[in-house]
Write a protein that binds this DNA or RNA. Structure first.
Lengths: 241, 241
DNA sequence: TCAAAAGTGTTTTTAGTACACCCATGG
DNA sequence: CCATGGGTGTACTAAAAACACTTTTGA
């Protein structure tokens, strides 16, 4: 019963942090933003950007602050992913972490560079490499958190319009399709994708502007903005193997 | 950068609790398990069952313990819902709560009573009433948490096999259908539902047994057990209005 | 023999897939 | 004038929805 709740002043102090899985699309692949730990434990290892929650600060607020402080990024979308609190996950003391999932528009445009604006200790790492334990050792339980974040992101692309959060303010349908193709690592039929997106009311709204063609020509593409819809009905399916 | 992480020993102590949205189907409606607060703050108000996390205890572990202590229920499914940590959500001091979502098989069978095994201070309340602020005042931010939990449950029925977590070990397809109809408050065509469920491999497995017909007759129905599948592909859609 | 619930069959409608083909641009 | 990517048309296929109908039970 509720009477087993003791007063907070009696309680063991648990440290509370926020950590963020920050995803973006670059070089045609889904990439995660990682920082290198400057201090023990796990000194020198890659980790998710994160930090402690301040006393008078909300959790979302702490996540925004940490992303700004550590990486300077402004996500197009930020949502809570889950809370990880196994005793022993931090070797120093009991710390539970509230993990966030952030989608960031491509930092250097399609096929651009690796995001030179990032701090020296931060890097974009393809999730395929970041999740390969032989090539990347992540601190704490961050492998698990990143795994969960990537799976959440892949699955949310199916039934929400969040793919637009990976795109700049204005984007072409090819750019939007590239988000799905990179995140799911599968190719999508362009004509059918176009029809599907345009048939889903509120997914994208046309701006009337045209994008300049790429260096190798091609018809100038229509530019779109993200629409008001959040949930897609029906979803954009990935081909589960 | 990660250097802004201070050592845990320097940190303000935040209280950490778990609260549970416990859902079940009874009287043809989705119902939530609430407890009456015996002490201030919000003395006498209805609240989600919950309690503080112990020092050496994992979060999931704390959720199972609290459910057992406060309500004596053994959920068929328990998952994390989200973490709520606005400063001021607890008038006493800074407390963040990790909310869980639990699905419990019908306590008294279909159309049964209101679950007489519950403690005196606990009650099953139809979510429609529990979420109506004019009829039910919930403590803390539990209105918000319950809202989120109910929406998560409704949506998870679509793309997972979790509807079986509301059913007893063995169940008929009508019982399973009743879960969807109660949770979504809409009727489902029985023949099509049957085909859909049976066509989804791993959703249910036949036991070969037959259920006794109801008091008003009818053909005895096949009994099924929950299958191994977790995600349904394709989903069972609700008709979004 | 009637009502009620389980279960089957069949038609209609809708949505997804594959792919041929035309359009506008840069080299 | 050819390669490249944008965009349209259309036939084929799979799945969802609607609903008529048969089966087996209790009263």
């Amino acid at each position: 019963m509720a009477s087993t709740r003791r007063r907070p002043s009696d309680l063991p102090a648990l440290g509370v942090t926020v950590d963020a899985v920050v995803l973006t699309i670059a070089q045609g692949a889904l990439q995660a933003l990682l920082v290198q730990r400057p201090t023990p434990p796990f000194e020198g290892a890659w980790a998710l950007p994160g930090g402690f929650v301040n006393e008078a600060e909300g959790l979302d607020e702490a996540a925004w602050r940490v992303l700004d402080e550590e990486t300077g990024t402004r996500p197009g979308h930020l949502e809570q992913l889950g809370t990880y609190g196994e005793p022993g996950r931090d070797p120093r003391s009991r710390v539970i972490t509230v993990a966030y999932l952030a989608f960031v528009p491509e930092l250097g445009g399609v096929g651009g560079d690796d995001g030179g604006e990032l701090a020296a200790t931060a890097a974009l790492v393809p999730v395929r490499r970041a999740l390969d334990r032989r090539r990347t050792a992540l601190a704490f339980d961050h492998h698990r958190i990143l795994t969960d974040g990537v799976e959440r992101a892949r699955s949310k692309l199916e039934y929400t319009s969040l793919a637009t959060a990976f795109c700049p303010k204005q984007f072409t349908l090819s750019q939007l399709r590239a988000v799905y193709e990179a995140a799911w690592d599968q190719s999508i039929d362009a004509p059918n994708f176009r029809r599907k997106v345009l048939a889903t009311s509120g997914f994208v709204t046309p701006t009337g502007r045209l994008a300049a063609p790429g260096p190798e020509g091609g018809k100038p593409a229509q530019l779109y903005r993200a629409g008001r819809a959040v949930h897609l009905q029906p979803p954009v399916y990935r081909h589960h193997v």
